[in-house]
Amino acid sequence: MLKQFEQQWGQKIMTTKPLQVAIEKKIKAGQKAFIPYIMAGDGGLKAIRKQILFLQNEGVTAIELGIPFTDPVADGPVIQEAGSRALKEGANLKVILNEMAQFKEDIQVPLIIMSYLNPILAYGIEKFVAKCEEVGIAGLIIPDLPVEESEMIRSKLITSPVALVQLVSLTSPQNRIEKIAKAAEGFIYAVTVNGITGVRNEFGKSLDEHLHNLKEISNIPVLAGFGISTPEQVEKIGAMADGVIVGSAIVKAFHEGNESAIKALLPKVVVND
C-alpha cells in the first residue's frame, strides 16, 4: 500500500516530458516501445527525411537520430563507419538541425538526438536547446555525459519539453542506479552489455535480473539497447523491459537499402495507430 502511494505521489510531482508520455501510451496499450537509431547524413542529408518518414510510417514509438562525430568512443564498427560516411557527406549538428527544420511539419513521431558532448558545446548549449525546441526534438541522449556532469545541460531543460535521457549500465551499482533513476527523464536507457554499440550473439545471464531491478526502481519506462540486432533478440529482451532500441542493425539495413530487414525487426505487437 505504502509503496503504491509513494509511487503515485512521486509520479505526480515529477515533471513528465512528452517523450515519456508517448512511450507510456504504447505501454498502456499493452505494446512494447520500439526505437530505431539512424545515423543522420548517412546516405546524404536528404536521406534523413526519407528514413524518418519510413520509420514513422512503420509505427515506431520514437526515432533516435545519431549525429556523426570524429571520435565516437561509445560506438562499434557499424555506427563508426556510418558516421564516417555522414561526415564525408558534410553532416554536422548545425546542418542536420537546419535540414530537419525544413520538414518538421511532416513529423509526428518523437525524435531523440544522440550526440557526443563536444558538437553540442561547439554549437552552444543554450542555442542548441532553443533550436531543438524549434525543430520539435523530444529528447537528448549524450553518451559521454554521465549524471555527475549533466547539470550543464539539465539546468537548461527545466522548463523545456526536451527530455535528457540517462543511461544505466550493467556495471552501475545499486546506489548509482537510484541516483540516475531520480535524474532520468523520458525513459531510462538500459545498456544491455558491457561494451560499445553493435551486433552481439549472446547477452549475460544477469540481464533479466538487471532489467527487472531497474523497472522496480524507475518511475519512468525502461528501454533496453546496445547489441540488439535480430527479431529474436527484440522479442526476448523486449519481454524483460518496456521496449528496445535498435541501432547498428537499422543503420546497416538502410545503408544496404534492405528495408524489409527493418520491417522484420519491428516487434510483432507494433501496429500503426
Partner: peptide, 13 residues
C-alpha cells in the same frame, strides 16, 4: 577536467 565518459566506465573510475 571532469569525467565525460560512457556510464559503463563510471563504476571503474
Amino acid at each position: 577536467g571532469g569525467q565525460f565518459v560512457p556510464e559503463t566506465l563510471m563504476t571503474a573510475l
